[in-house]
Computed example of a mutant assay.
Amino acid sequence: MTQNLLALNWKMNKTPAEARAWAEELREKLTANDTELAVMAPAVALASLAAHLPPGVALGAQDVSAHESGAYTGETSAAMLVDVGAKYAVVGHSERREYHHETDADVAAKAKQAQANGLIPIVCVGEGLNVREQGEQVAYTLGQLEGSLVGVGPEVVIAYEPVWAIGTGKTATADDAEELAAAIRDALIERYGSDADGIRILYGGSVKPDNIATLCAKPNVNGALVGGASLKVPDVIGMNDALK
């Protein structure tokens, strides 16, 4: 059985000092279970988190450069992230696609660079409200997936995040999530063969302690990419406990 992954995406929140306090509170309250926890923190907070997270809780970045090194002011390389202890890197989040105009090709380049340095990319895909209202969510999302995995190996996590459900309080139903997760699974099998069986597919979009268990009970949903509810330790504990 595939281990669930709870990927906590803080977005642009928490200073290094606040990150340390959060990690120390988590250390006090977390009990072991079968779910993997990973914290996707701002780059400046990663070192502080690495020193204070509970044992077994992984570290991740919210983005990674498509370049190995060089004259790319403001970017953070995969090697830098690995050196500070990161295991994961989110690529292609809907906010990066929208606000920074990242294309599927950009996402694939970042994912390849992450893998080349030993990071596991969490590749995000998902449709906006207009696409869903037209009933084209499956075709749209699979198109994004195909473009975002060009040249990318199977050491990857996929996060399905319907854009209309991110930070809006609206959540796709468990059946909505499974519809896309199953379609993504089939596409991954076509691309990677039997290696696709071990690829985790996460749901992201207004995940909370009271809905995560229902979402993750679906056969092709293997955890969640969580935004707002990741910022408070009691919510994280609630989600963690719901998956026991």
Rank of each mutant, 00 (worst) to 15 (best):
K29I: 06
A21W: 00
L180D: 00
P55T: 15
E179F: 00
S206M: 13
L180N: 04
L202G: 03
A165G: 06
H52D: 12
R96N: 13
T15K: 01
L215W: 04
P16K: 09
E190Y: 03
Y99W: 13
E98D: 13
N130W: 04
A7Q: 02
A78G: 10
T103G: 07
N222K: 10
H52S: 15
N220H: 15
N220I: 05
A51S: 14
G74I: 11
K29L: 14
V233Y: 01
S48E: 15
H93W: 08
S48P: 00
A79T: 13
V156N: 02
G167K: 08
A177V: 07
A71P: 10
L225D: 04
P219Y: 13
I184R: 01
T2F: 04
H52R: 12
N117E: 14
V157K: 02
H101G: 01
E98L: 14
G135R: 14
V64S: 07
A242E: 02
T31N: 14
G135D: 10
N4I: 01
T214R: 13
L37F: 07
M80K: 03
A19Q: 03
P162N: 09
A58F: 06
K110H: 06
L129K: 14
M80W: 09
T76Q: 07
L81G: 00
N240F: 11
T2M: 13
L49W: 04
T35L: 09
V150M: 02
D106Y: 01
V157L: 11
L243V: 10
I166F: 02
K232S: 12
A89H: 10
V125E: 05
S65L: 00
I189W: 00
